[in-house]
Deep mutational scan, measured.
Amino acid sequence: SEEKKKAKERLERLGASSELARELLDRANGNAEKAERLLRKLL
């Protein structure tokens, strides 16, 4: 979806690899905010 694509791009801008961004979104069930929080914990 367009929303998921935007979320993935945002995670990548924050420093996630394409693969990591995809994994985070999967774990967050597509929830962009939750995926971002997970990423911030990792960085």
Score class of each variant (00 low, 15 high):
N29P: 01
A7Q: 06
L11P: 01
R40A: 11
N31V: 06
E2I: 11
E3R: 10
L24P: 00
S1G: 12
A32C: 08
E33W: 11
K8D: 03
G15K: 03
K4Q: 14
A35Q: 00
R13N: 08
E9F: 04
N29A: 08
A28Y: 11
R10D: 05
R37Q: 14
G30P: 00
L20V: 06
L42R: 04
E36I: 14
N31E: 04
R10M: 08
E2N: 10
L38D: 06
L14M: 09
K8V: 15
L43N: 05
E36L: 12
R27P: 00
R40P: 00
E36P: 00
L43Y: 09
K4V: 14
R22W: 13
A32S: 08
E3A: 13
E19T: 08
K8P: 03
K6T: 10
K8G: 07
E33K: 13
N31F: 04
K5F: 10
K4Y: 15
L11T: 00
L20R: 03
A28F: 15
G30D: 06
A21Q: 01
L24C: 07
K41G: 08
E23A: 13
E9V: 06
A35W: 02
R13G: 07
L25K: 00
D26Y: 11
K6G: 12
K41M: 13
A21C: 04
E33Y: 10
A21E: 01
D26H: 12
S18Q: 10
G15M: 03
E19N: 07
R27Q: 12
L11D: 01
A21S: 04
K5E: 13
G30T: 01
L24T: 01
R40I: 14
A21W: 06
L38S: 04
R10P: 02
E12R: 07
A28V: 10
G30H: 06
L20K: 03
L39A: 00
L20T: 04
R13C: 13
L43V: 06
A21R: 02
A7D: 08
R13Y: 10
R27G: 04
L11F: 02
L38A: 09
L38H: 04
S18N: 08
N29F: 11
E3G: 10
L14V: 03
K6R: 11
K8Q: 15
N31P: 01
A32K: 04
N29K: 09
L42K: 05
R40V: 10
E12D: 01
L14T: 01
E19I: 07
A28S: 08
K6F: 09
K34V: 15
G15P: 01
S18C: 06
D26E: 14
K5C: 15
K4L: 15
R37T: 10
A32F: 15
N29D: 11
K4M: 15
E23L: 14
E33I: 10
D26M: 13
L39T: 00
E36V: 11
L24E: 01
S18K: 11
L43A: 05
K34C: 10
K41D: 14
A21P: 00
S1K: 10
E2H: 12
N31M: 04
K8W: 15
L43S: 05
K6V: 09
L24A: 02
E19A: 13
A7H: 06
L42D: 04
N31W: 06
N31K: 05
E19S: 08
K4H: 15
R27S: 06
L39I: 01
L43I: 09
D26I: 13
A32L: 15
L14K: 03
K5M: 11
N29T: 03
N29G: 14
G15F: 04
E3F: 09
S1Y: 13
K5L: 11
R10L: 09
K8M: 15
R40K: 12
K5I: 13
K34Q: 14
E19V: 07
G15H: 02
L42S: 04
A35D: 00
E36Q: 05
S1F: 12
A35H: 00
S17P: 05
K34N: 08
N31A: 04
E23D: 12
R10F: 08
E9H: 07
A28R: 02
R40H: 13
E3T: 09
G15T: 02
A21F: 04
K4A: 14
K5N: 13
L42W: 11
R13I: 08
K41E: 15
A28P: 00
R13H: 10
L43W: 09
S18E: 13
K34E: 15
A21G: 02
R22K: 12
R27A: 12
A7V: 08
A7K: 07
E9S: 07
G15V: 02
R22L: 15
A16F: 03
E3M: 09
L24G: 00
S1H: 12
K6A: 13
E23Y: 14
E9R: 08
N31T: 02
R10A: 07
S18Y: 05
R27V: 09
G15R: 02
G15Q: 01
E12F: 04
S17Q: 03
A16Q: 02
E2M: 11
E23F: 13
A28M: 09
R40G: 05
L14F: 04
L24I: 06
A16M: 03
E3D: 12
D26A: 12
A16Y: 02
K5R: 13
L11M: 04
A32E: 08
R37S: 11
K41W: 14
E36K: 04
D26R: 14
R10E: 05
L43H: 05
A16W: 03
L25G: 00
K4F: 15
E23Q: 12
S17E: 03
R37F: 11
K34P: 00
A21M: 05
K4I: 14
E9A: 10
G30A: 02
L38N: 04
S1T: 12
E9K: 09
L24D: 00
L25D: 00
R13K: 12
R13E: 10
E9W: 05
K41V: 13
L11N: 01
K34S: 08
A21V: 06
L25N: 00
A28W: 05
A35S: 02
L39Q: 00
R40W: 14
E33D: 12
A16L: 06
A35G: 01
A32P: 10
E23S: 09
R37Y: 12
R13M: 12
L39N: 00
K4R: 15
E23K: 10
R37P: 00
L14C: 05
A7L: 10
K41A: 13
K6I: 10
A32M: 13
L42E: 04
E19F: 05
R13F: 11
E2V: 10
R27M: 13
A35L: 06
E19Y: 06
E36F: 06
L11E: 01
A35N: 00
E12H: 06
K41T: 10
D26Q: 13
S18M: 07
K34H: 14
R40D: 07
R27H: 07
K5Y: 12
S17W: 08
L25Q: 01
A28N: 05
A21N: 01
A7P: 04
G30S: 03
L43F: 09
S1A: 13
L42Q: 05
L14I: 06
A21I: 07
A32D: 04
A7R: 05
K5H: 09
K8L: 15
S1D: 14
N29L: 09
A16H: 03
L25S: 03
E23R: 12
E19G: 07
R37N: 09
E2W: 10
E9P: 03
A16N: 02
G15S: 02
A21Y: 04
S18T: 10
E19C: 04
E2A: 11
E12W: 03
L14E: 02
K34R: 12
N31G: 02
E33H: 11
G30M: 05
L42H: 07
E36G: 03
R22N: 14
R40C: 09
L24H: 01
L24Y: 03
A32N: 03
L39F: 08
E3S: 12
N31L: 06
E36R: 04
L25V: 07
K6Q: 12
N31S: 07
R22G: 11
L14P: 01
S1M: 12
A28H: 05
E3L: 11
R27L: 14
L25F: 05
A32I: 15
K5S: 11
A7I: 11
S1I: 12
E23I: 14
K34M: 15
E3K: 09
R37M: 14
E9T: 07
K4C: 10
L14S: 02
G15N: 01
L38E: 11
G30C: 03
R10I: 07
R37V: 11
L20S: 02
E33R: 13
K8Y: 15
G30V: 02
E12K: 07
E33N: 09
L39M: 04
L38T: 05
A28K: 01
E23H: 11
K8F: 15
A35V: 02
R13W: 11
E2D: 13
R22T: 14
L14D: 01
E33V: 11
A28D: 00
L43R: 06
R37D: 13
L14N: 03
K4G: 13
R37I: 13
L42P: 01
L24V: 05
E36T: 05
N31H: 06
A7T: 06
R22D: 15
L39W: 07
A21T: 03
A28C: 12
